[in-house]
Design a protein around this nucleic acid. Sequence first.
DNA 1: AGATTGCACATACTTTTTGAAAGTGCAAGC
DNA 2: GCTTGCACTTTCAAAAAGTATGTGCAATCT
Lengths: 137, 137
Amino acid sequence: MTYMTETPEYVDEHARFAFDVFAKACTSRTTLEHLTGRWGILAMAALWHGPLRFNALRRRVEGVSEKMLAQTLQALERDGFVHREAQPSIPPRVDYSLTPMGRQTAGKLVDLIEFVESQMPEVTAAQARHDQAKVRV
Amino acid sequence: MTYMTETPEYVDEHARFAFDVFAKACTSRTTLEHLTGRWGILAMAALWHGPLRFNALRRRVEGVSEKMLAQTLQALERDGFVHREAQPSIPPRVDYSLTPMGRQTAGKLVDLIEFVESQMPEVTAAQARHDQAKVRV
DNA sequence: AGATTGCACATACTTTTTGAAAGTGCAAGC
DNA sequence: GCTTGCACTTTCAAAAAGTATGTGCAATCT
């Protein structure tokens, strides 16, 4: 008997095109990680409502360290989602905003976030059921 | 019955019973991370097209280790996005599929992925511009 | 027939990433 | 005149992720 009855594996119709996040070394995976990573998605969503200065963004995205916020914004800027505008004043003033592409992307991210938040009661219920079933040994 | 694991005093009246990913201790942030984390989003997107066995999923999501895939699927299962069905055969056969809530969520994730892939030419151009401006000797 | 491969994980150990803390240089407010 | 805020960078400890190996059995290869 073969190991057979193998569930037919899906073949991505877009695989023949240049970018595929399922491919290990594809640059699109890196960009996706910048956008959906722990801090990237929150920074993008925060900027969705309008430009913010570095420390304002830091206060909005609770829990992010200065180091990680700087790193995250640098990656998003390089990818063309975020625009950085620094005024050479003292103290420094740096405004972060979304580019047109960034705004489109952030819209989808905000939509995702709001959907997830709306599903949280069901998620919480599922977690409770899961933990009940496990602990009941 | 509080939805948030901790309800600090600075939570305002309107947000008290809502989930907010910007809040450090909100459970919705953890769930969002399960979904949009490095492997979570790829696993969800892979399952969007139909059920897959553990090792098939592992082959589809290039680069994921067994440890991380198992960990990721366990979190997604606990959150109620993924359904795990194990057959007590030898060798073992375990099918992973999306729950109704998981399917809705995966739809949004797939949409996001496809959008990001479609924007990659612009991203690549932005990166080139950025690097040019910086490395300009 | 004995060795190898595949299955779905778990566990010990190593490497990478992240986070926390302090440094920078200056100016406005207490 | 001393603290605070600005937008970061750098250093070092902690956490997360990645690597390698173990498990038990059956089907396939040599």
